[in-house]
Design a protein around this nucleic acid. Structure first.
Length: 864
RNA sequence: GCCGAAGUGGCGGAAUUGGUAGACGCGCUAGGUUCAGGGUCUAGUGGGCGCAAGUCCGUGCGAGUUCGAGUCUCGCCUUCGGCACCA
């Protein structure tokens, strides 16, 4: 009876057994060993929300397969895990549940850690870190001080993005479609505020340049980063004001059209606007317009459906090449942050300028004639943006416009009217957050000494934990004298601490470095260890960080390198962006969107009416189309869940959730279990076949299939991360083993040895995917060594050799027959055999054979 | 509008270099397990015609290259992402 019970597949029992074993033996601990080739595998660390979701499961399962595989390949693998532990949800939850963000965070970490352990992921938990730990963020504060020293961190008053839900400023990267990336229904407004910035623009050119040197990154991530950096080549052209010494700098990429510039536009925010209208009759009108425009939220103002609008400033400037007096406008479509915040307007060759000029009756002058030569400012209905020959352009008439770009830039430069330049779209990274649960910015403000950095010896500036949250949100720090009241490090007088905290993306910009030496206390990074492990060989995470975390990390890594903390310039050699997990939504007419557990047999559990199935979209609580990994673990075990996540689609594609698919994976795991358990006697009685020869044809086929599978699985994992096809190949082998077992073939010693070879191969190959059951089967098979320490198998070329080969026969490219030929046959013999084939003769009868194409050992095509 | 990816059975997906389209799994059908159900095993399963052997059609649509195209080229359609007044 007892024995019968152990023979049943019980994932709950055997999974915890093996998890305990791995932990006790410390099999996933990694230590630096210069004699071994290192492999640093990293998955994006989670925000400790309290429970793992299915996206984590997929991400971390993919990573775990690679980690376990690489370990079996003999690599010294680093596979750490930790917590992105600062951030606003902790503050909200604390207010809601009347607790403290720290307690909430640490409780969540404990709960999620338990879940990750239950999934059997092979992390080195000794390297665990939480970014809210002062022992972590103190080094970030140190780096901040060094950046401040070098001018890479600076404070300025400027127009910033404000999210009312976050009660905080956001960086440009954190605004999507005019909304906060965390609150997609909350429009961002523009506020003028004092904010700290990190000078990512200093590295923009290099980061862009290195996009060419990251062959291990997905093209679309690099494209997104290139677009975000937005480098363009052009010129600064200087327009002197009429009747004053003031000069207006404009940026253009189209200096070839400068002779057609018939007016100039300022962005509403431009500081010169106020100055030049002072005392003019237009002053009120202009200031009203500026105020009205700036009140609009940034999304509305810059949306392309917003009409181009502007107001005449009452002042003129001089086009430096035509010496013509041209009017100055203030226009809503001109961006202050891009270029110089002022543009020369060429209505004939820029559609925006064209619309603006038509609206306000401004002058047009064609300066690029199209190839038909019929372009006329009187009749044109839209701007001509194509190529052509310069006209009305003084000394440049007759030149091709593109060829003239450089010539005109040089001409401007020689006359002191401008110069060639490059411009970037990316702006500096605003890191001030008006939040409590973040790393304090280590700065002190003194009325006498101004902005004073906290002395390095006084670090860390610890975030105080013993204070009360403010009931209606907002940071308590500015209301906490024990925190903000301090003395000036320079004059020792009364001073005030900075109460803003850092963007949590600062923490995630270097956590991967810190994993290499989380216990180091002499500085941010232990040079020896960080140099051994960095860079990360393979990074795995969601595409949503394409231009957030991934761009910030590339910047921060360069800063650390320039400060001498690191030797690498790029943090992540290879990047895999896994797809989203999706599921169809379900909706009841009266009860709205339903969770899966609210639907029984297609009916709403509340009212028994049929449920409407909606689109398949990314799993999210708001769509209610979520499954809880914990429920799946409880029902099927971690192995089944891992198996399904890998089998349902390749990792970079979206995964469509299917309850039936999970059932299918569970069935396979059970089939694998029975394959060993039901034949234990035969399997235990022999050793694995090792290619000593003398096999019957069916046994040789099974032996060959075993080695074909080893070869296929290895290349699928190694070259493409296509775990779905790797698993499919193993399933095929399992099917063949079962077929042999069910056949009438004699099961003698040698037969069992070949079966054993096949079965042990299945067990080893599947270990990275389903580590618990395979460890159990491995030990049942009498193999003492843990699979963690078992080397990955290598296929034998000898075993792959076939006596006979299948050759496909075609007539005019259509499949007509198949024949088997000895592997030793050459082209001529195969051709002769093909032409002699009965079916081929039937299809070629009475026709002249024009040509015969023979593809060695594969195919013959007879053309008639 | 611009850039990119994708489009293959009832479904998820294979087909890595131009060479048997649909591996593997789900679902479905029939049968066995001497049958409550479930589980499990066996066989079948792209479509049309046919009793059958067969045969024709078939990878979003239309052309092209080729002995041969899911795969390459050109033109369109659809879907999904990203960017979008960036001067």
């Amino acid at each position: 009876m007892g024995e019968f019970r152990t023979m049943k597949y019980d994932p709950q029992i055997l999974e915890s057994k093996w998890q305990a074993f791995w932990e006790k033996e410390g099999l996933f601990k990694s230590t630096e060993d210069p004699s071994k080739e290192k492999y640093y595998l990293l998955e994006m660390f989670p925000y400790p929300s309290g429970r793992i979701h299915i996206g984590h499961v997929r991400n971390y399962t993919i990573g775990d397969v690679v980690a376990r595989y690489m370990r079996m390949r003999g690599k010294n693998v680093l596979h750490p895990m930790g917590w992105d532990a600062f951030g606003m949800p902790a503050e909200n939850a604390a207010i809601e549940n009347n607790t403290h963000p720290a307690k909430w965070t640490f409780d969540n970490i404990a709960a999620m850690k338990k879940q990750l352990k239950r999934m059997g992921f092979s992390y080195d938990w000794d390297r665990e870190l939480a970014t809210c730990d002062p022992a972590y963020y103190r080094w970030e504060q140190l780096v901040f001080l060094k950046m401040y020293e070098k001018g890479l961190a600076y404070k300025k008053k400027t127009h910033v993005n404000w999210c009312e839900s976050c009660q905080s400023v956001l960086a440009n990267e954190q605004v999507e479609d005019g909304c906060c990336w965390r609150h997609t229904d909350r429009e961002v407004t523009i506020k003028e505020m004092d904010s700290w910035f990190l000078k990512i623009t200093e590295y923009a050119d290099e980061i862009l340049d290195y996009c060419q040197r990251l062959p291990g990154w997905p093209e679309r991530v690099l494209t997104m980063q290139k677009n975000w950096i937005g480098k363009s080549y052009g010129a600064i052209i200087r327009f002197p004001m009429d009747g004053s010494d003031e000069v207006i700098d404009t940026f253009t990429t189209r200096q070839d059209t400068v002779f057609g510039a018939t007016f100039l536009c300022f962005a509403p925010e431009h500081p010169l606007v106020k100055e030049i209208v002072k005392g003019l009759p237009q002053e009120k009108k202009v200031t009203d317009f500026v105020e009205r425009t700036l009140k609009m939220d940034s999304y509305m103002r810059t949306a392309d459906f917003t009409a181009k609008e502007g107001v005449f400033s009452g002042r003129y400037c001089i086009n430096p090449v035509t010496e013509e007096k041209i009017p100055i406008f203030v226009a809503n479509f001109v961006l202050f942050e891009y270029g110089t915040g002022a543009i020369m307007a060429v209505p004939t060759h820029d559609q925006r300028d064209f619309e603006f000029a038509k609206k306000y009756g401004l002058k047009l002058r064609v300066v690029i004639q199209n190839p038909d030569g019929n372009l006329d400012e009187e009749t044109m209905a839209e701007a001509y943006v194509g190529e052509g020959t310069l006209v009305n352009s003084g000394p440049f008439n007759g030149q091709q416009n593109l060829a003239a770009l450089d010539n005109i830039a040089e001409y401007l430069e020689s006359k002191g009217m401008g110069h060639k330049t490059e411009n970037f779209r990316i702006r500096d990274w605003g890191i001030s957050r008006q939040r409590y649960w973040g790393a304090p910015i280590p700065v002190i403000y003194c009325d006498r000494c101004g902005t004073v950095p906290v002395p390095q010896d006084d670090l860390p500036v610890v975030l105080p934990l013993d204070l009360d949250m403010r009931p209606n949100g907002g940071s308590p720090l500015p209301f906490e004298p024990s925190f903000y009241k301090t003395t000036c490090p320079e004059c020792k007088g009364d001073a005030r601490r900075e109460t803003d905290t850092m963007d949590t993306f600062v923490e995630s910009s270097w956590y991967f470095d810190r994993y290499t030496c989380p216990d180091y206390h002499e500085g941010p990074l232990d040079p020896e260890r960080v140099d051994y492990w960095m860079p990360v060989d393979q990074y795995i995470g969601g595409i949503e960080h394409a231009i957030l975390h991934l761009l910030y990390s590339r910047f921060y890594t360069r800063v650390l390198k320039d400060f001498g903390y690191l030797k690498v310039r790029e943090p992540f050699t290879k990047l895999l962006t896994q797809g989203m997990v999706c599921k169809e939504t379900q909706e009841c007419e009266t009860h709205g969107l339903l969770y899966p557990y609210e639907v029984k047999e297609g009916l709403c559990v509340h009212c028994q009416t049929p449920v409407k199935t909606g689109n398949t979209v990314k799993m999210s609580k708001s769509k209610r189309n979520v499954v809880d990994p914990q429920d799946l673990i409880d029902q099927y075990g971690a192995d089944t869940l891992r198996m399904f996540c890998l089998f349902a689609s390749p990792p970079d594609r979206d995964l469509e959730w299917s309850d039936q698919g999970v059932e299918g994976s569970y069935r396979f795991v059970n089939r694998l279990w029975r394959l060993v358990v039901d034949h234990l006697e035969g399997l235990q009685a022999v050793g694995s076949y090792e290619g000593e020869g003398g096999l019957s044809e069916p046994l040789e086929a099974l032996h060959r299939k075993t080695h074909q599978t080893i070869k296929k699985v290895t290349s699928d994992i190694e070259n493409r991360f296509h775990f779905n096809t790797a698993i499919a190949a193993i399933m095929e082998l399992v099917n063949e083993i079962n077929q042999f077992l069910n056949s009438n073939e004699e099961k003698d010693q040698i037969a069992w040895s070949v079966i054993r070879e096949a079965v042990t191969s299945v067990v080893v190959l599947l270990f990275p995917v389903v580590p618990h059951i395979t460890e159990e089967l491995q030990s049942m098979l009498g193999l003492d060594q843990s699979l963690v320490e078992t080397p990955w198998p290598e296929h034998s070329e000898e075993a792959l050799k076939e006596q006979k080969r299948l050759v496909v026969l075609q007539v005019n490219g259509k499949l007509r027959s198949k024949i088997e030929v000895p592997a030793s046959y050459g082209k001529d013999e195969i051709e002769a055999e093909a032409l002699a084939d009965e079916r081929i003769q039937r299809f070629t009868e009475g026709k002249a054979i024009k040509k015969v194409i023979v593809v060695q050992k594969k195919l013959v095509n007879v053309v008639v």
